[in-house]
Design a protein around this nucleic acid. Structure first.
Lengths: 339, 339
DNA sequence: ATAATTTATTGTAACGTTTTCATAAGAGAT
DNA sequence: ATCTCTTATGAAAACGTTACAATAAATTAT
């Protein structure tokens, strides 16, 4: 391994000078810089991060915490896409990205502790948001830099997070259905513990209220992600005396299940029932019909969170902020004028 | 930050002793161990990896290299799933996982170089296999430990890799179609540059040959992953004078597109055409019909590669090996007896 | 011409570990 | 009682880097 000393010897200069050349310190004369850089190139020098980190205290690495993998949700193409967004700014800033996951809540917490105590990373991105998260409690207690993708359980103003305006998105996509003449609109969402679900549901309800449409309890269904993708939800909906003519589903992957179950039951989409969805992952354009869905810009969710985190790690004093990533509605074939 | 010295002072013992306790060195008396461990617990000691790595030379970290993200393939739920597999053994062995991706080939190579030169990781897992990969060339040249998921371009015997028996899988799933009476069987695969595609195709051809079924050039189609998920492929197939009655598709996500396009064209699955697929990702059970697909055990692909890599990093002399992860065929509703 | 200031460079300590070598104390052998 | 042999511990060097204080040389001010 070629070290700073080798370069120093080669150039006939001291190690400290070489170090400053690496840092591009203005105190070093252009000639020496030139000379040293050539030697570094020639010898194939690469700085050893561990030595650097040991003294510099900064690791130039951030960690991404995945939700507990006991959860099928992990198969959602959402994750590769956020990771891609994070990765792009990580790469651009010459940082590195450590991925952390675990089967259980407990495992995840342990991993996080190992990472912060062992100073593996300068900061963390939480790729999920859940109520009463012990990880958040731990990070707050240690005052360790982190940002959250999604909406924090509490202390909204104190936690830097990047999110969509899920309320407005929910409202607007529901309005789209209403504008197309639908009045009996159902809602299928994931777990009530997730803020995405809650926000999108609130938006849905607000849209109904604004349009003076009645709201039926039975039209709102919460289902576990893994439970055959909304099969039961659809069955429940179809068994109702008055069937809805439109459905708002909070996730494309779930929509796929909903779509299948509907067609299986002989219900045409969008002929009999219109469907709108969220996320705009790849599959939403290859289903039949292609889904009208709100594109929440997952990539940007990742990129923004990485930017905010890095900013935060270099200057701990900057105040927490909330970043709202804009969404766009992608109109495709799953909605039809009613009647 | 509480260091080894603090623990030493607290216990009235030397730093070296504390270090030895951490390493569970048998030379330390049970009493001192007990005493030191208590102090570590009490003070909340956690070992600083950078200091450790600096002297120990091992980072206890491995890197995972994702394919270039210019590629839509990244949205494939395949990746979260391998990552989950890798993550599980990483966690179990107390290693950490660094994720590396890049837009372009060049970016990826740079990242890899940074990782190996800066001694970020002890070894790398390549989550893709492609022809003439400069990353592989680089790693070989530096004799840096790595394993590949999939099949290497050349030097099969010299590169540790973990793969499925894609030939047999392709053959067996095609045989399933043949056993159900199909004789006109088409094949839709991804890029010919990918070994998965090639192997599965060879298996498909072998099955046809074994059954003395004729092979039509027109029945084999290679399509880019991102191109609307096999829409064109299906259209080509349907425009043929003699339509196939069965199709082998090399990826579930692609099957979804195929399925949609077929139904759109008024072709019933499995009524008119039977479909078999590969990977068994979550969505394959929520399509309509649910896909008969070969479960390649993605999780295990990840776990095995991590195990093999770690083994390799602790002992560089162990010979390269090839690990074949068994597959199973999951029979669902996309195949029907012909006629 | 001398003093004060700026500029470019170096020597050294520090970061938190691990590891080699040395040493003290106790056990066993003579 | 002396000597050797374990066993348990400590002191110190090393890992590769950064950063602070010190110094030498060059420039400017008086």
């Amino acid at each position: 391994m070629v070290t700073i000393k080798d370069v120093a010897k080669e150039t006939g200069v001291s190690p400290s000078t070489v170090s400053r050349v690496i840092a591009d310190n203005p105190r070093i004369s252009p000639d020496t810089k030139q000379k040293v850089r050539e030697a570094m190139e020639r010898l194939g020098y690469h700085t050893n991060i561990h030595a650097r980190n040991l003294v510099a205290k900064s690791t130039k690495a951030i960690g991404a915490i995945m939700p507990s993998s006991a959860n099928k949700a992990l198969q959602n193409p959402f994750f590769p896409e956020v990771l891609r967004g994070i990765g792009s700014v990580i790469h651009e800033r010459q940082y590195s990205l450590t991925l952390s996951s675990g089967e259980t809540e407990q495992e995840i917490l342990e991993e996080v502790q190992r990472m912060v105590f062992g100073s593996y990373v300068d900061g963390l991105i939480l790729l999920y948001s859940r109520v009463e998260d012990p990880v958040v409690a731990f990070l707050e207690e240690r005052d360790f830099p982190y940002v959250m993708i999604g909406k924090p359980f509490d202390r909204l103003e104190e936690i830097t997070h990047v999110d969509n305006d899920n309320f407005m998105a929910g409202k607007q996509i529901t309005n789209h259905l209403i504008a197309r003449g639908h009045e009996k609109i159902a809602f299928i969402g994931g777990s009530k513990d997730l803020f995405v679900t809650r926000d999108r549901e609130s938006g849905y309800l607000a849209a109904l209220a604004d349009a003076d449409l009645p709201h039926h309890e039975d039209y709102v269904i919460h289902t576990e992600f893994l439970k055959s993708g909304g099969k039961e939800a659809v069955e429940q909906l179809l068994s109702l005396p008055i069937r809805p003519t439109g459905i708002v589903v909070t996730d494309d992957l779930m929509s796929l299940g909903v779509l299948s179950t509907l067609e299986e039951s002989g219900v045409q989409v969008p002929g009999d029932i219109s469907l709108v969805s969220f996320n705009n992952v790849y599959l939403s354009e290859i289903t039949r019909p292609a889904l009208t869905t709100v594109d929440i810009n997952i990539y940007e969710l990742g990129a923004q969170s990485a930017r905010a985190l890095i900013e935060r790690t270099v200057d701990k004093t900057i105040p927490p902020k909330r970043i709202i990533v804009p969404y766009t509605i992608i109109y495709r074939g799953s909605v039809k004028e009613y009647p």
